[in-house]
Design a protein around this nucleic acid. Sequence first.
DNA 1: GGCAGCCGCGCG
DNA 2: AAAGCGCGCGGCTGCC
Length: 639
Amino acid sequence: MTEPEESGSKIKYRAGCRRDKNSGAQFELFDENDRTNEKIDAAKEIISREGLTLHYLKSSGEASAAVEELMKGKFPLGLDIETAKLNEFRDHKQAGLEPHLSCIRLIQLYGGGEKVYVFDMFALNVKILFPIWDKPLVAHNAVFDVKHLLHAGAKPHQIGCTMLMANALTGKLFSLADLGREHLGWRMSKTQQISDWDSPTLTQDQLEYAALDSVAVYKMFRILMDQIAKNKLIQVYTLMRDAQLAIAKMELNGIYFDLNGHQRLMATWHQAKKRSAEELLQVLGPHVNPDSSKQISSWLQTNLDKEALNEWPMTKTGQLKTDRSTLARGPHHPLTTPLQKYKDAAKMLSTFGTGYAEHINPVTGRIHAYFRLGGTATGRLSCSGPNIQNPPRDKQFRKLFSAPAGRILVVADYGQIELRVAALISGDESMLEAYANGEDLHRKTAAAIAGVPLKEVTPEQRQAAKAVNFGLLYGQGPKGLARYAKTNYGVDMSEREAVEAREAFFQTYSGLKRWQQETARKAESSKSVVTLGGRVRDFSREARGYQYTEALNTPIQGGAAEVLLATLPKLDKYLEGLDAKLVNVVHDEIVLEVAKRDAPRTKQAVEKAMIEGMLAMFPNASTVGLVEAKAGANWAEVK
DNA sequence: GGCAGCCGCGCG
DNA sequence: AAAGCGCGCGGCTGCC
């Protein structure tokens, strides 16, 4: 049998290539070694080597007996599922991964010993497995399995995940096959991953392949848990594990998106793009593609005068930079306005246009994005397919995320959570005092920089202080601060002023300064940093190695991420009995869609969960002004 | 035609 | 001494 998936030099998949999810990451996975010529074992060989027997169950009598046997097994049971596309969506790229477009074909379970069970869910009802769902289970990329099980009417209450365990240990997301190779010495075949799971009859190869994954997760759980305990990673793993159910439900819920409004908006973008393209043509001529930074750079090279070119910033490959802040700086040029207008419209159309709306699910009419636990170096979630963590703040766009008839959005966010976390982990008394008294830290910083009393701080001074707070928190230098203040806050700050602002900042927040020095010192010598929840970021595993600014950022961003993770299971619990759905999570913000009558109680529930999430990580935190929840017809209205 | 790196840009 | 961080996505470009 040929093995096309193994013939390439990189074991790397694009979305939609496969029908199960044991690659782990849906889009791309880490692959440390090139295994071009490595031998692969058929599942049959491993099964026989391990002394296992496969039991394929197609009748409810056999299945009940098997469930009874499994209930005597060792917990957590190893679990895996295979899914089949629904007929109507045979041609849909993602159908096999998406619960609304597919169904569970097989459920594989292993509880130690000789027998591994494969339940054929074309022949059986999921209810027959009901005692199992209350028991501890483990799967690889368990959120995937949980989503399908929930959709099929089963609710697994306690489920571990080998992918998240490995993430706690390494910071990365590995496929099951990679973990199997590393921890079991198994060279697992992937041939059957793309096979036809829709067929009424499955081959022995398919059944063996399916069965083996449940054995792999069972065995690996024990090995990984041992390592997690030894390395004091229980907390970071548990934070992720306990967030799984809320994430699975959120992905299954999806978020409502106003397709008609989106199409009207796209028409305005098209117009804007067309108009600015015509203006650009007058400046650039017909041979420059405005979508090409390289071509714009060449054009600038030949059309700019010497003085301008002398101080024009370059990219790392020696191109003249053409980004917004570079174009906006210095004396005005006839190119800048039309080019920026063009870029703005082009960005909307490319990233937030047709392709975005194509993610609307044909069954639910909603967007079901993928939220990846452990998807970032700091412990934040990442989101894709589409990324609904970065929709433009423009009201016209944000309001497309709305509530269907009879419903309303409840949106809650943490106020300045990273600054709060910085105050708490550094123990800086001045910052802590400000938060304890419900003071505005930006104002406090502004007063310190300007050397005036709090009451005399002007709005401009406060705006500048925001840049100072967010920049200096992560080790920004004077030059960077001046640039950052201009670009992100519209504040003109000379380098001299930036130096003075830094001095005033660190004099006021001397505890933070000490923490930064100490954190950087430890991180540099150990080549790693650790968050409060115990997530280790190992710089020696990263291409860039130790980086001062990353070392300072990680415990703060990571600490805030852990607060959110701690919040999610609490939120799920407090939403019980309410007609409320979690539909989006954006780092420090939670979006829910609720029946109108449940809005007040949902606001209370989310505020309670968020405050308790903060206190779970930081028991001494001030909760004054920590959380704000609002209700409105759409996402724009609530901001 | 596929892929990877670069650039730029949307968000927190 | 100096150093903002974290993502995902799309277009272009050069390479295979």
